[in-house]
C-alpha cells in the first residue's frame, strides 16, 4: 500500500485545500501545471550525515536509480536545490548547520526526514547526550521515512509520497485581505 492520488484524502499529513472547496478556474489549472513541474523536477541537496546517506547514495546509483523520477540533478548548493533529504543522525553540533542550510534554500522547499534518527532520535533517543531528538524540532518536515536505515525502495516511496503531496497542494497561496468584520 502506498500513497497515491486516490487515498490522499486519508493522508495524515497537511494538504492545502481551497477555502470553500471552490477554486478559480485559472488558478486551478496553473496550480496543476506548477505542481506537475515542481513535483517532477525535485532537485535534492547532497546532505548525508551517516548510515542513511549510504542508502541514499544507493538509491541514486544504478540499481535503484532515483533519476527515473526526475531527481537526478543533485545540486551541492542549497540555493538551487528544492529538496533536502536529511539522511543521517543530527547531533547538537550539526543542528545549527542544518538550520542554516534550510534557511538558505529558495522557496518552495521540501524536507524529507529519512531514517529513525531524524524522525525521533532513533536508537539514540533514550541514552544519548548529543543527538537531536527528531529533526522536526529544527526544521519543518514534509515526509517521514521510517527505517534504520530505510531500504532504497522505501526512500523512493517516500519521494513519491512527496510528489503526491506536492501535486495536491496549492502552488500559490494568496491570502485574501482581512475586512473590518473579520478583525
Amino acid at each position: 500500500m502506498g500513497v497515491t492520488e486516490d487515498n490522499l484524502n486519508t493522508f495524515p499529513g497537511e494538504v492545502y485545500r481551497d477555502d470553500a472547496g471552490q477554486a478559480n478556474f485559472f488558478v486551478t489549472s496553473i496550480d496543476k501545471l506548477a505542481n506537475w513541474a515542481r513535483s517532477n523536477s525535485l532537485w535534492p541537496l547532497t546532505f548525508g550525515t551517516s548510515c542513511c546517506a549510504i542508502e541514499m547514495m544507493s538509491a541514486a546509483s544504478a540499481k535503484y536509480d532515483w533519476s527515473r523520477f526526475g531527481f537526478e540533478v543533485a545540486r551541492a548548493t542549497p540555493r538551487q536545490a528544492d529538496l533536502i533529504i536529511v539522511a543521517g543522525t543530527i547531533c547538537t553540533k550539526m543542528a545549527p548547520v542544518l538550520k542554516r542550510l534550510y534557511n538558505q534554500m529558495a522557496n518552495p522547499k521540501y524536507v524529507i526526514a529519512m531514517g529513525s534518527c531524524t524522525i525521533s532520535g532513533g536508537p539514540f533517543y533514550y541514552y544519548s547526550y548529543s543527538v537531536v531528538k527528531g529533526v522536526d524540532t529544527i526544521i519543518p518536515v514534509d515526509v517521514y521515512i521510517p527505517g534504520c536505515p530505510p531500504r532504497p525502495e522505501a526512500l523512493l516511496e517516500g519521494m513519491m509520497a512527496l510528489q503526491a503531496k506536492i501535486k495536491k497542494s496549492r502552488a500559490y497561496v494568496i491570502d485574501s485581505p482581512k475586512t473590518k468584520q473579520e478583525e
Binding site: N40, S41, S61, A62, D65, S67, F69, G70
Partner: peptide, 9 residues
C-alpha cells in the same frame, strides 16, 4: 552508468 535516465515524466 548502466541505468535508465528519466522515465516517469
Amino acid at each position: 552508468q548502466l541505468r535508465l535516465g528519466p522515465m516517469r515524466v
